[in-house]
């Protein structure tokens, strides 16, 4: 009777045994690395937009406050994508024939909203609320980065759950005085932790419950 297993079956069985251990590890490692890559988190990725709107031009150079356009940010869960009428508040007089702004004029005359591509898009099971963050001293730039320097909008942070929890577990690292929430030039002072701990108390933030599931998930 001939041999059922030829010598190369030995090699193969070793390879398979090694593979059972190595391949899942490699896949898991790849998954972890990919999850944090810009490809998955879309950090710093500029998206195609109907109009190449520049926050640098409007906020950095023009000095327009965030709330001029995102007017519901203090009172509502959503900051509010401005209606076309808000654009036309100035652009009814400025750059009225610019080709770049043609989609804005079309939107106004057709009474059809401009379809922007969302840059900061959380999963639908996250119930993020802008107003509470504003009311408790989380500044715009803490999450959105230096928007006033961005010619085209991009995500400055991953917005992953781990990133959110970093602040929810230790908000004193990021909180600012309420009158500095919309300031684009704020940076943490040298005694940020001392200041932050004071602000956590002043704003009545219950850090013990800030990382509860139901704070963000329903």
């Amino acid at each position: 009777m001939p041999q059922v297993f030829k010598p190369k079956a030995n090699t193969l069985s070793w390879l398979i045994m090694a593979g059972i251990v190595v391949v899942p590890l490699a896949v898991a490692l790849f998954g972890i690395v990919y999850e944090h890559s810009a490809n998955a988190t879309r950090v710093d990725l500029v998206r195609d937009q109907p109009v190449p709107f520049s926050h640098k031009h409007h906020v950095g150079d023009g000095g327009i406050d965030c709330r001029y356009c995102h007017s519901s940010v203090e009172t509502s869960a959503v900051a509010g994508v401005p209606p076309t009428e808000t654009c036309m508040t100035c652009h009814s007089e400025l750059w009225t024939s610019a080709a770049m702004l043609a989609p804005v004029r079309r939107s106004l005359s057709a009474n059809a909203p401009i379809r922007w591509t969302r840059v900061h898009d959380l999963p639908d099971y996250v119930y993020f609320d802008h107003s509470i963050h504003i009311a408790k001293g989380v500044g715009c730039t803490t999450c959105h980065g230096e928007v006033e320097t961005m010619p085209l909008m991009r995500k400055a942070h991953t917005l992953t759950m781990g990133w959110c929890l970093d602040c929810h577990r230790a908000p004193e690292k990021y909180l600012r005085p309420l009158d500095r929430v919309f300031a684009t030039d704020w940076s943490p002072p040298p005694d940020q932790i001392t200041q932050g701990v004071r602000l956590v108390q002043a704003y009545h933030i219950e850090v013990d419950h800030l990382a509860d599931c139901s704070v963000c998930h329903r």
């Binding site: 899942p24 896949v27 998954g31 999963p123 639908d124 099971y125």
Partner: peptide, 14 residues
């Protein structure tokens, strides 16, 4: 396993 990342979690976009 390799195919797993391809699964779209439908709760992301409800």
């Amino acid at each position: 396993l390799v195919c797993l990342p391809g699964c779209r979690q439908e709760m992301d976009v409800q």
